[in-house]
Nucleic acid binder design. Sequence first.
DNA 1: ATCATTGCAAAAGCTTTGCATAAGA
DNA 2: TCTTATGCAAAGCTTTTGCAATGAT
Lengths: 159, 159
Amino acid sequence: MSSAKKNVDKPVAGDLGEELEAFRKYLKNHGFRVTREREAIAESILRNHEHFDVDELFMSLRSKKPISKASIYRAIPLMIQSGLLAEVYLEDGHMHYEKVYGRELHSHLRCLNCRRVLEFSAPELAQVEKRICRQEGFKSVGNKFEIWGYCSNCQDEKK
Amino acid sequence: MSSAKKNVDKPVAGDLGEELEAFRKYLKNHGFRVTREREAIAESILRNHEHFDVDELFMSLRSKKPISKASIYRAIPLMIQSGLLAEVYLEDGHMHYEKVYGRELHSHLRCLNCRRVLEFSAPELAQVEKRICRQEGFKSVGNKFEIWGYCSNCQDEKK
DNA sequence: ATCATTGCAAAAGCTTTGCATAAGA
DNA sequence: TCTTATGCAAAGCTTTTGCAATGAT
């Protein structure tokens, strides 16, 4: 998926820097500090994690820059408020997150039988979002749409 | 909201019986037993709780028919699978549920600043759901749409 | 008469928090 | 230098689970 040479010496490449910059700006504007930990977390997400949970993030940071889970948990609300992340769903007793920044959020089909989650995209949702926000005077940071039921393999389970 | 006389002697009135019946049928078809506890839980939800969490349900059952939280937790997956309920969001560290049966599911606007949740309805979502399900061969039981951001009172917080 | 379900209490996790230390600004 | 952030470990919570007793079929 990634090319052999990845310029690991340049930690922030291309437009990833822009997104990181937006996060830094958010922190400064709100009186939070820009720390290496917060940068490492945000960078890891921007680079590697469309979809993740706290433990995955913790493990993947472990090799480069170990960061305590407490700090990860403390960074998450900041990243959500800055529009970088969204909570997507609770599964197996813990929360899963999804990168929002610079990406159309995916929607999910969840099978109640096999628990699989399929992604799909539905461009109309952007219009619905726009209309509702205009109506309600709401400033949107992100959205999600989810359908649950039975996937094609599990239809028989639903008698 | 409710009229003075409510016929409390007839525990299941009107079309509520139909919905309860559907739940009973689900249980039987899947080899689960129809117990008083499950009936009391389902009835309470159908009658009183558009929106609730486990503790609220526990408290409201307490007076009529006390049921342990363990049993409530064990009943919830059954009610979700039968199409009676949906998980709607995790807030303050616990899950909130919403009645689905016989009701168009509401969608939510969540303010990241004041944490308020506003409801809205968007009929187009039903069409999106239909189309996606046809495309994917998915049998839907319910859906939810959520937008997060800043409500009209909290726009200034997002600098 | 079986065997699933209930209730209780204990266990299991995930997430949060207190406090001393480290490090942004 | 002054505060805020981090890490560690303990505490807090909701949710799950084991087991004996109960109850549905």
